[in-house]
Write a protein that binds this DNA or RNA. Structure first.
Lengths: 234, 234
DNA sequence: TGCCGACTTCGTGTCGACAATAAAAATACA
DNA sequence: TGTATTTTTATTGTCGACACGAAGTCGGCA
């Protein structure tokens, strides 16, 4: 029945995309630890592909900053840059605001359905206390809003930032309580309503508040984490 | 004296970067026409490199959207997306504002020298009526300001947008008059002053006005161009 | 004469192998 | 015994060649 062994499941031009997307997910979901080495031969075996397409996928990942290649030496999964978190939060907040504003201004009626569906998924994840699901669907929800805003440049940057954020959130997902997520559900509802009403400034304010929530949440996780290390006996 | 023939001038890991940067420049400077095909074998001959490193450079360019690869078919220099110009201008304006704001907030004394130097270069180009030089140095000037703002995410996006803008401006550089450029020199001066004074809101306002200037300038070029085609006998 | 299908051609996607480089290991020496 | 130097080894960067896919070409058929 099945095509005999090693018959590549990918069609001709799609080997690289597969590798790219798979690795991308694994990096964002922290299945590949930051700083861990990425071996080309290993991947070549794993995907049953030559090193050439693997390499091209790695180049793409490097262009997005997800991996770091030390020339002529090993290439590693990029470390999470805790020192640059300030920049990250600043950009993330701005993109939250801009994309939500634009969604209120530019969305079409057909966009709302998709956004609502993702919000529902988020809600479901919250109720099931599925933290990983929450992180993923929250990201999808905001990407959908960004897409309704119809500005490719913002959507691209925002997506990258949100994915970067997923990586950070994963680090702390064990410490999630379930007060905040419920609050997020409400905030999401308000944002949807503002978008539908084409209330641009309202959407902006809600997005800004939402962003501040999330930023301070992540910040508190990090400082809590720091306290752990500070508690070490000396 | 010289190493005998075809000894690759690039050191081992730097072949791809060379190809990447060369092609990138040629695309931005419109030496490679939008829509024109990019042939790997041809480039392979030209750079005296195998197709593999060429390919990796192309993947990088594709990740930035400078080239478009039709899978299993030819790959072409990306077309200038006139329909998406609205999005482009929106993002460009926002980045002008944000980077200038941040420069006023975060710059260090040592940043000012570099910015001043680039402003001087721009001024020189304006006085010499060197339009291509103006376009290039203007870009460098604003990138320097963005770097002084110290937010990698903004700097990256802004750089990409400015380079995209260079491509568009090149299309119309013949129609430059020299009233506007002189005005830009003045606006640049004001921006520098606002940055030095750490006048964040002032810097923001100046940047917004500057962006509006440039956007409406480009817009007028485009509509003028459209009028040309509209004038065709039917 | 106009349309459909096999054939040819050109360029990409993929492969396995080789060369170079830098880290690690092994050796020599003080 | 510790340090400097050579050798080994592992992994990347590059190469030339082959295979597949899509256009364009040519010929057959209605």
């Amino acid at each position: 029945m099945d095509d005999t062994e090693k018959q590549p499941v990918h069609k001709r031009g799609y080997g690289v995309s597969t590798v790219y997307e798979t690795l991308r997910n694994e990096i964002i979901e922290l299945k590949l630890a930051p700083g861990s080495p990425v071996d080309e031969q290993q991947l070549s075996d794993r995907f049953a592909l030559s090193r050439t397409p693997i390499r091209e996928a790695l180049v793409r990942l490097a262009a997005e900053g997800l991996i770091t290649t030390l020339t002529n030496r090993t290439t590693i999964v990029s470390n999470i840059d805790f020192l640059g978190l300030g920049e990250f939060f600043d950009a993330l907040t701005l993109m939250y605001r801009v994309t939500t504003r634009l969604a209120a201004a530019n969305h079409q009626a057909s966009d709302i359905g998709g956004i609502r569906a993702l919000q529902l998924q988020f809600q479901t994840a919250v109720e099931a206390r599925d933290v990983l699901g929450m992180i993923a669907t929250n990201r999808d929800f905001h990407v959908a809003i960004a897409e309704a805003g119809r500005n490719r440049y913002y959507t691209d940057l925002f997506t990258r930032l949100l994915d970067q954020g997923r990586r950070i959130l994963r680090l702390y997902y064990s410490s999630f309580n379930d007060v905040l997520p419920r609050q997020y559900v409400g905030e999401h509802e308000d944002m949807i309503q503002a978008i539908i009403n084409r209330d641009i400034d309202g959407a902006d304010k809600l997005a800004a508040a939402h962003a501040d929530q999330i930023v301070s949440q992540i910040r508190s996780y990090i400082t809590a984490d720091n306290r752990q290390t500070a508690r070490l006996p000396l």
